[in-house]
Amino acid sequence: MRWRFDGWIAGLGTRSGTRIVLGHWPRSPLGAFSDVMVERPDGHRVLLAPSGEVAEFVGATYRFDEVRTVPVRVTTGARWRVEAGPLRMCFVPGRRGVLGVLLRGVPPPLARMPAWIAVIDRPARMLLPGVRTRGSAGNGRREWYGAQDLRPITEVRAGWNGADLGGLAEVSPPVRFGFGSVPPRPALVRVTTTVSAGP
């Protein structure tokens, strides 16, 4: 059995040491939704999910120390705005570079194929430390990340329970929700994620 989630992943760090991964999924087996994974400076990992169904699925696929079900609202555009429980965030995607242009040149049906994703896993690891395009997830599941675009994030304003998280920083150390991290440099990635319950 396979589930396919089509949308965007934004990964960024802040000067406070908090690292944030936003998943924005207009098309998925669970309907349109957004969720946020947060790793605090002390390593505490929090999932902010908009429903019990999303919390159950994502919580069974990745690793968290805490799962909260809260309203998650995302507005896209020149500035992306995120409201999710204790988190308030606004970030700005910049112009795509060479890697983003190359990813956009891959036909989408090919970019989403697990066989193609397996081929580019090693080059992705060499270009982007910590990044993997395929691997084992929780509960015997496997995952493939089919990237189709990449844009740098150039600016962020974020707060947690009203406390400022500081300016933009690299995702360092890498986040520990699953088998791989997001790119070390803050980025917005257009992606199709495939999750399989079998081989």
Rank of each mutant, 00 (worst) to 15 (best):
P86M: 00
P108E: 02
G94P: 09
G52N: 12
M113V: 13
A197P: 14
E83D: 12
S16M: 04
G52I: 07
G180A: 15
G105V: 01
E56D: 11
A137Q: 08
S51N: 05
T154V: 15
C90Q: 14
L99I: 11
A118P: 05
N161P: 06
A55E: 02
V67L: 04
S172I: 02
I117M: 00
R63H: 13
A84H: 09
T76W: 04
P41F: 01
V82Q: 08
R4E: 10
M113A: 15
A163C: 04
F179C: 07
M113D: 14
V101P: 01
L150V: 15
G23Q: 11
G7C: 04
T14L: 03
V92A: 02
L22H: 12
L188G: 09
I153P: 09
V67M: 07
G198K: 06
T69S: 10
V70E: 13
R125Q: 11
V54A: 07
R2E: 06
R40G: 02
T192F: 02
G77Q: 03
L128I: 05
S16I: 05
A10F: 10
R79Q: 14
I120G: 00
V189W: 13
V156N: 04
G11T: 10
E155F: 12
M113Q: 11
G11N: 05
L48M: 06
T192H: 14
G159S: 15
E56H: 05
R96A: 10
R81K: 13
L99K: 00
A118Q: 14
L12P: 13
V46M: 00
F57M: 04
P183C: 04
P26V: 03
A187Y: 13
L188Y: 02
F64E: 04
S16N: 12
R4W: 03
P184C: 00
P41E: 01
E66F: 05
R19H: 14
G162R: 11
P29L: 00
V82N: 10
F179K: 08
P199E: 10
D164W: 05
L165W: 13
S181E: 06
G97H: 01
